[in-house]
Simulated assay, not measured.
Amino acid sequence: MSVLQDFVTQYGVYAVFLFLALGIFGLPMPDEFVIVFTGYLSSVGLLTIVNAMIIAILGVFIGTLVTYTIGKKVGRPIIERFGKWVGLSEKRVSRVERWFSRYGSWTVTLGFFVPGMRHFVCCFSGMSGMAVKRYMLFSSLGTTLSGIICITLGYMFGWPFN
């Protein structure tokens, strides 16, 4: 985490935005850790809490839009080609797509509260054909709520929740 702290010290909110926008892919580290750590960095004065929340929410939201777009454009062909290697059979993919046609909107929102889940939810939202405006609405709701909670936890309790 010292790398993140060094980047934030040097580049401020731009570093947080970049780490969180890329964090949706797990690069350079999972965004769940980065967003809580951002709250901690606010508590020690490297960022203001308001700027941290705004930048963190925007960073995660942009990352989820990119993942949604990847899912929409190339998700299905990638799953068809490589899915069998990771246990994603055609039957499982069809089941997930049916799930998204029924409950996809709320799955997007609630997926932000399950570590690691948001990565798959964003991609499968695009693959399932969810309308981009609908996706943006429910994604922004999940991003905002989870962002406020995670940053507040990092701010109040420190890293790693002393």
Rank of each mutant, 00 (worst) to 15 (best):
W159H: 00
Y103M: 12
S146Q: 11
F157G: 02
R118G: 09
M156N: 04
T152G: 02
M127R: 01
F100M: 08
R102W: 06
C123F: 04
G142C: 06
S146R: 10
I148Y: 02
G147Q: 03
R102M: 14
S128F: 01
R134I: 09
C150A: 10
C122G: 11
S146H: 07
F120T: 09
S128N: 05
P115L: 06
F113E: 09
S128P: 05
L141R: 10
P115Y: 04
T143N: 12
S105N: 15
S146W: 08
C123Y: 06
S139M: 12
P115A: 06
F157Y: 02
S105T: 07
C123E: 13
G104M: 06
T143Y: 07
V121D: 00
G116P: 04
T107D: 10
L145I: 10
G158A: 01
Y135N: 01
M127C: 02
T107Q: 12
F124M: 10
W159P: 00
T143E: 12
V121I: 11
G147C: 01
F112W: 09
R134C: 10
V108Q: 02
G126L: 05
R102D: 13
I148T: 04
F124N: 05
G116E: 05
S146T: 07
G154P: 00
L153T: 03
G111N: 12
Y155E: 02
I149G: 00
G104Q: 07
L153W: 06
G116Y: 00
M136V: 11
G104T: 03
M136E: 13
F113N: 09
V132P: 07
A131M: 11
L137I: 14
G158E: 00
T144F: 08
S140T: 11
F100K: 05
S139C: 14
V132K: 09
S140H: 13
V121Q: 00
C123D: 10
G154V: 00
W106N: 15
S105F: 12
F124Q: 04
T107Y: 14
T143H: 11
V114P: 11
M130G: 03
S140Y: 14
S101P: 07
V108F: 08
F138G: 13
G116Q: 07
W159L: 01
R118A: 07
T152C: 02
S140V: 09
R102T: 15
W159T: 01
T152A: 06
S128V: 03
V108A: 08
R134N: 04
M117V: 15
M136K: 11
V108T: 03
F138C: 14
M127T: 05
